[in-house]
Every structure is written in structure tokens, then in C-alpha cells.
Design a protein around this nucleic acid. Structure first.
Length: 329
DNA sequence: GGATCCTTCTTCTTCTTC
């Protein structure tokens, strides 16, 4: 950067020369080209190449995947057509909380989180690993471990506080979020951050409740099902150190929400359908949380993405199983 | 009672200029 500054300076210094105006034109395009070459030298591809050099090639990169719009092989319906509107349950009762109870038989039902984690794009894996390497370089192995556990702990604390608030149905509007002695101090900033969103949440129908798709083989636990500004939504609470003002900042979160909603809509334990979603990103310093609403149209798009990820996961498992089978014999 | 599961988070190039 200092080099470019020097170039600029030298062009200014030669202002009196007859070339002055032409030169500065040249310099500006030169600077531009230098800048653009700098940019291209920093692309994920070259970083990936560097990464390959250090860590060996990424297996996934061998498949000539095309990032163009892919469609799932089978477009399973997001909504369950058999469920009708007249099965509306009263919204006044206690929210449902179906606890996870797996291990009926030996059938393995993978979770939404597991499937998303195992179908990350090579690019996502690359940036996550690079982030991890940098953090370890900065904090050390132990420090990084502690940092990660701290992030998880904050998320868990917020979830249990919200669980408490939404279950008790306490009039949150009348409370000062900064004065909540019953919640740990670490969570108060998040609660303050999220309080303006909670004012728009009503008719809570489910909290931390298991959803399992009746035909597609997956399950998960929804944070919350409630009305947000009158619209019934699957809601996902998130804590974040970095601001996430746009939906695109939330990575796979919308896919996660669509997966939960699709499972709920096709789970006999729930007698209603949820077409919309909401991702709420809360901040520790108390600054207003970002609430990203997912319309039914948007949810359908993410449902397709989810089906793709699910297909990928299933194929991967199948090929993995067949490749490891001979060893087991 | 112990082990396992689900979930809790983490990514996006950089730093131009006044």
C-alpha cells in the first residue's frame, strides 16, 4: 500500500513536467490494474491452491460440480396437503415441548445440524478452516477451545432464558431487560438486544420441540413456533459477535429454518402448518437484534436447497457405506 | 447410571479517499 502511495506522490512531484496530465492518467490505470491484480491474487481459488499445497488437495474439488441452479431430484412438498385449515388448535394453551426420544429400534435418523455440517461447500469448509487456523495462531489451542466453548455457552444461556420467558408468558413488555436478576449477567445484553423483537412475538405454540419428517429421514429441534407480527413462524434465535444485518450474513441458517418447518409440517404430532420463518440475531452489547423474516416464497426456495443438501447427504452415506462394507466383512 | 444425541457457534478480499 505504501508503494502505491509513493507512486502517487512521484506523479505529483513531476507535476511540472509536460507529461503531467497524461502520466497521471496512466498512473491511475496502472494503479487500477495493480489493484485488480491484487484482488485477483486474493481470490478463494488461489487461496485454495495455497491451502491444497499445505494441507493436500480437497477430495471434493475433484468432482466437477457446477454451482448453477440445481434442482432436487424429487421435489418433496414443503406443506402437507392432508392437513387442513380447520385443524387449528387453540393458541392459548401451554406451548408444546416434545422431547427428543430416539433409539426406538436401531433406525438411524440424522439431524438437521449433522446433515448441514456434512454437506458444507468446499468454499465454506475452506473459510471455516482458515478462520480456525487464524484463531489458533492468535489464541493458541487452549485459548481457541475456551473461546469456542464460550460462544456455545452464550448461545445456550440465551436459549434457556428465552425458553423461560416464553414459557412463563410473563409480560416482557413491562420489564426492564437490564434488570433481570434471575438471568445470568452474560445474557442480559442479549435479552436487551432481543427485547424489541419479543414485543412482536405472541401465541407461542412450541418451544425447543422435536420435529421429525414423516417420510424424509431426518429430525431436529425447533427453537420456537410462534406468531411474529401476527404471522405464524418457525423462529430461530442466534447469538453473534459480528453484526448480521442481511439474511446473506446468516449462511445456512435459512436452510436450517426451512428444514425444521418442512419437518414440522410433515410430523403428525403437530396439527398445523407453518409456512414462514424468522431468524433473530442478538448482540451481546445490547444493540438491537436483527430479525430476518422469511416469507413463504422464500421458505420454498430454501426448502429446495435443503432437499439438495439432504440428497447429497444420503448419497454420501450410501457411497461411504458401500466403500466401508468390504472392510467390515 | 453412563453414553449418545441435538444444539449451542465459527466463514464471505481489501482498506483505496476526504
Amino acid at each position: 500500500m505504501t508503494r502505491i502511495a509513493n507512486i502517487d506522490k512521484s506523479s505529483v512531484d513531476r507535476k511540472s513536467s509536460p507529461y503531467s496530465s497524461v502520466d497521471s492518467e496512466r498512473y491511475s490505470s496502472l494503479v487500477k490494474s495493480v489493484m485488480s491484480s491484487r484482488v485477483s491474487s486474493q481470490t478463494p481459488e488461489t487461496l485454495q491452491a495455497e491451502d491444497d499445497h499445505i494441507y493436500g488437495p480437497v477430495v471434493k474439488a475433484q468432482t466437477p460440480t457446477r454451482p448453477e441452479v440445481r434442482e432436487p431430484k424429487t421435489l418433496h412438498p414443503f406443506l402437507n396437503c392432508e392437513e387442513t385449515v380447520d385443524t387449528e388448535e387453540p393458541e392459548s394453551g401451554l406451548p408444546a415441548r416434545i422431547s427428543l426420544n430416539r433409539g426406538q429400534g436401531r433406525s438411524f435418523v440424522p439431524s438437521v445440524t449433522r446433515i448441514l455440517q456434512q454437506t458444507l461447500s468446499p468454499e465454506q469448509i475452506f473459510y471455516l478452516e482458515r478462520w480456525k487456523r487464524r484463531m489458533i495462531a492468535e489464541l493458541g489451542e487452549e485459548g481457541f477451545k475456551e473461546h469456542s466453548q464460550n460462544l456455545f455457552r452464550q448461545g445456550k444461556l440465551l436459549h434457556s432464558a428465552l425458553e423461560d420467558i416464553l414459557t412463563s408468558g410473563a409480560a416482557w413488555k413491562d420489564r426492564d431487560p437490564s434488570e433481570t436478576p434471575e438471568y445470568p449477567p452474560e445474557v442480559r445484553g442479549y435479552l436487551e438486544s432481543i427485547s424489541h423483537v419479543l414485543e412482536d412475538v405472541s401465541a407461542v405454540r412450541a418451544i425447543e420441540s422435536t420435529v421429525q419428517h414423516g417420510t424424509l429421514n431426518y429430525l431436529g429441534i425447533v427453537d420456537c413456533v410462534a406468531r411474529y407480527r401476527g404471522v405464524l413462524c418457525v423462529i430461530d434465535w442466534k447469538t453473534s459477535d459480528k453484526p448480521k444485518p442481511f439474511l446473506s450474513n446468516t449462511y445456512d441458517n435459512p436452510v436450517q429454518v426451512a428444514a425444521y418447518a418442512g419437518a414440522l409440517n410433515n410430523d403428525g404430532n403437530y396439527k398445523y402448518q407453518v409456512e414462514n420463518g424468522l431468524i433473530v440475531v442478538a448482540y451481546k452489547d445490547g444493540s438491537p437484534a436483527h430479525a430476518h423474516q422469511l416469507s413463504s416464497e422464500v421458505m420454498l426456495e430454501y426448502w429446495k436447497t435443503w432437499l439438495l443438501r439432504l440428497e447429497e447427504f444420503t448419497e454420501k452415506r450410501a457411497s461411504h457405506a458401500s466403500s466401508t462394507l468390504p472392510e467390515n466383512r
